[in-house]
């Protein structure tokens, strides 16, 4: 394939992925907006007003970065896992497998679809957040980088989950039992400084902690972890997951007999 042909193929996958989640926006875009609004009303407004400031920020403002990033993580992951699994389930993945589109573009296309949904949901959630809170963005570049990198990372993770999934149950197990706990324990609602030392140390092996804190640093300028370390960890994960996902695709695991 020439470069233009490859570009056309990639664009096709991306547009298809985009239309898929836009077509069902009531299931894909609206729920995170509602959930975030509820978090703000309950944790921010009602309970948050009883909690003292953290790192010089009102509790309401402190939880904003974590809530935005949680929406990005969940939605990027959910988009790719359900889209790729249903392509497998309906066998429509064969449309791509018989075509000359190289595997890395198939992967990039699905991942970009997840990133697109992560970004759109992230923006919606940010708009909701702006209604409830007020802060000035500390570093726009850093915030945007972490935001996009996180979306890429979890789109890749969703892809790998979909490759191994053999039933619709399999695509909810990881989000429910791994992703959600790690996200909640990743310091959305608290600073790990508030934890006993043992739990602080334990928290440090949770990769999501680094993402939430570097995003919080981008937005608010405060963090529990070192930013360079955090970015390094995120990029390392992306490289690892991308290579592994591509390996699975090249081998045809879960998609070829």
């Amino acid at each position: 394939m020439t470069f233009t042909e490859k570009f056309n193929a990639f664009k096709t996958i991306l547009i298809k992925e985009y239309l898929r989640f836009i077509r069902i926006w009531i299931q894909t875009i609206l729920p995170p907006a509602i959930t975030t609004a509820l978090y703000f009303v309950i944790f921010g407004n009602l309970i948050g007003s009883q909690i003292s400031d953290i790192d010089g920020y009102r509790y309401m403002d402190y939880i904003v970065p974590g809530l935005i990033l949680m929406a990005v993580i969940t939605n990027a992951y959910a988009n790719v896992v359900s889209s790729f699994y249903s392509a497998k389930f309906q066998k429509s993945i064969e449309e791509l497998l018989v075509s000359p589109t190289p595997n890395y573009l198939i992967l990039a296309g699905f991942v970009s679809g997840g990133v697109a949904r992560g970004i759109i949901v992230g923006i919606v959630v940010t708009l909701v957040a702006m209604y409830f809170s007020s802060f000035e963005i500390h570093s726009f570049t850093l915030s945007l980088s972490v935001f996009v990198l996180t979306a890429i990372l979890f789109s890749l993770a969703g892809f790998i989950n979909a490759v191994y999934a053999n039933s619709f149950d399999d695509i909810t197990i990881i989000p429910t039992f791994v992703l959600t706990p790690l996200t909640y324990l990743g310091g959305i609602f608290y600073s790990i400084d508030m934890l006993p030392e043992f739990w602080q140390k334990l928290s440090l092996i949770n990769p999501i902690l680094y993402m939430i804190n570097s995003f919080r640093y981008g937005l608010l300028g405060v963090s529990d972890t070192d930013i360079v370390t955090a970015l390094f960890i995120i990029i390392l994960f992306i490289a690892g997951l991308f290579s592994y996902a591509l390996f699975l695709l090249n081998k045809g695991i879960g998609i070829k007999q």
């Binding site: 394939m1 042909e5 490859k6 056309n8 193929a9 096709t12 298809k16 309906q90 429509s92 449309e95």
Partner: peptide, 24 residues
């Protein structure tokens, strides 16, 4: 049958062409 059941007929064809690098 191995197409996405929830895609419109015309889109299925246009997408398939795209996978072969054909412009829209």
């Amino acid at each position: 049958f191995n197409f996405n059941q929830f895609e419109p007929v015309q889109e299925i064809l246009i997408n398939q062409a795209g996978y072969y690098g054909i412009d829209r």
